[in-house]
């Protein structure tokens, strides 16, 4: 069971309290109705599924109930960092080279 730091509660809590909510930084178009078929395909269907660093959304379901973003290494399952929803993709990752 992983330990996940909730950026709102500012605490590490067990995975049991959280739910994964898919890949992060996939913005919904402000003009959704005018989105082309190709752009809609990218937005709705295509996910990166990397071996390595993934940016993903989690929800502190049984805690503060907030959605937030996390950076996880899919090989080691290590969480490199978490940050609040709406914040930009971090430029630098702590301990990424470890």
């Amino acid at each position: 069971m992983l330990l996940i730091r909730c950026p709102y509660c500012e605490e590490e809590r067990p995975e049991l309290e959280f739910r994964n909510a898919g890949e992060a930084h996939i913005a919904r178009s402000a003009d959704m109705a005018a989105t082309s078929d190709d752009d809609f395909e990218k937005f709705f269907f295509i996910r990166s599924n990397p071996k390595g660093i993934i940016y993903e959304r989690w929800r502190h379901m049984h805690g503060c109930a907030r959605f937030f973003n996390a950076v996880r290494d899919t090989v080691s399952d290590r969480f490199l960092m978490t940050y609040k929803a709406g914040e930009p993709k971090p430029a630098k990752l702590p301990g990424a080279s470890e």
Binding site: A21, R28, R57, R59, F67, A85, G86
Partner: peptide, 13 residues
């Protein structure tokens, strides 16, 4: 409820 919260918190904050 989760669907609504998701949109409220992340797409329409």
């Amino acid at each position: 409820m989760n669907h609504m919260e998701d949109y409220l918190q992340t797409e329409f904050p």
